[in-house]
Design a protein around this nucleic acid. Sequence first.
RNA 1: GGAGAGGUGGCUGAGCGGUCGAAAGCGGCGGUCUUGAAAACCGUUGAAGGUUUAUCCCUUCCCAGGGUUCGAAUCCCUGCCUCUCCGCCA
Length: 424
Amino acid sequence: MLDPYLLRTELVHVQQQLSRRGYVLDVDTYTALETQRKAIQVKTQELQNERNSGSKLIGQAKARGEDIQPLLDEVQHLGDLLKDAEAELADVQSKMADLVEGIPNILDDSVPNGKSDADNLEISRWGEPRQFTFTPKDHVDLGEGLKQMDFELGVKIASARFVVLKGQLARLQRAIIQLMLDTHTEEHGYDETYVPFLANADSLRGTGQLPKFEADLFKANENPALYLIPTAEVPVTNIVRDVIVDAKHLPLKYVCHSPCFRSEAGAYGRDVRGMIRQHQFEKVELVQIVRPEDSQQAHEELTAHAEVILKKLNLPYRKVLLCAGDTGFSSSKTYDLEVWLPGQGGYREISSCSNFRDFQARRLQARWRNPETGKPELVHTLNGSGLAAGRTLIAVMENYQDESGAIHIPEALLPYMGGITVIG
RNA sequence: GGAGAGGUGGCUGAGCGGUCGAAAGCGGCGGUCUUGAAAACCGUUGAAGGUUUAUCCCUUCCCAGGGUUCGAAUCCCUGCCUCUCCGCCA
């Protein structure tokens, strides 16, 4: 959510900024609602004031034992007027809230213009894609060849976009998760967390999935409404919802492994082959809660923390700065890490690291007490995948395959594989 | 699942339907004392919003949502949550 004060005072500027995303802010509607709101609010408050002071007089008169009937006659009729005014105000305010909740975050100045992922800006590349002496297979052929990856079983048990992993391949994914958690806790100073995998509507609203993106979620329960989490970002960031964090505890750095559930409602026909785009996948998520002045640097650091995993696994990747049109609704700036997949002959997203600045914090009412002002102020929130474990499994399989279709275990994963060095 | 108790400011915790935004304590901040710190003492300290050049002033907020009333933290209803006991269970 954007700062209402900013909307009121710099509406045209905000509109210009948002046009970079291709988002059209309806200035006329906003201004009309705002004008209405102001008038109705003032009127309501005047009526309330009248009633309050009248009631106070009644109390005082009663205490003195005087006749209160004349005063009662004066105040009684205010009730209906007030009720109408309050209803009108609530109506305008909810209309404004709907409008404001649908407005995306303002982009950082460094975000390049552009419409789609084709316009994203490559920042750097790391590692050399391996030269194969044979035609590399993709993870589907490799996994099915090993009889340890079964998509038909996924369909039988659930539906399309689910998979069953078995044996050493299942263990390999677990090893990958272990490496990530150990690295981030032991080397990067994150606190490991275990959280609910269902989240309520308040939590999803806090991080911005609701109300706009309900279609992307799996709803698991009505009354209370509970949704399967699309990312650990939701439960973990909501740790600080409605909290005023002590300044000395900042930054908060959390790492969390969780399954993620996405309906992929808008992705029919995309990535239907293999494990790239599943309804359920494992991810290790990094979340930071920081002082506003630290968020830019924290964003660089968090992204670097995710990169460390790729480096440890010796997986070639590139770092991309998302353009205006490709940057997510709540984010002010996002880096994607894209890993080299020989089976696809291209780079694919394996991590997305975003700085939300105060956009989520405002919805969450996640604050800290600034020692300089003594006042509660909004924190900045950031998160990034460190990394998507399912896609990391794919990357390891495809990059470490040999001609026979066997997978050689990367050195960094050996401690987690119980003596296994090759699968197949 | 059954029975009972309760949800109040950053925290703990009082609060007859009428100057209650709310006692007290803790914590925080400022000061006195001290070489410095601690202790002690004094003072101060909720949030959101409206209006204003601004001190002022006004409104809202005592879990949430309804209701009664001129007036609700206080009374009534519904929901959510927490605690205690019993049952069941990994």
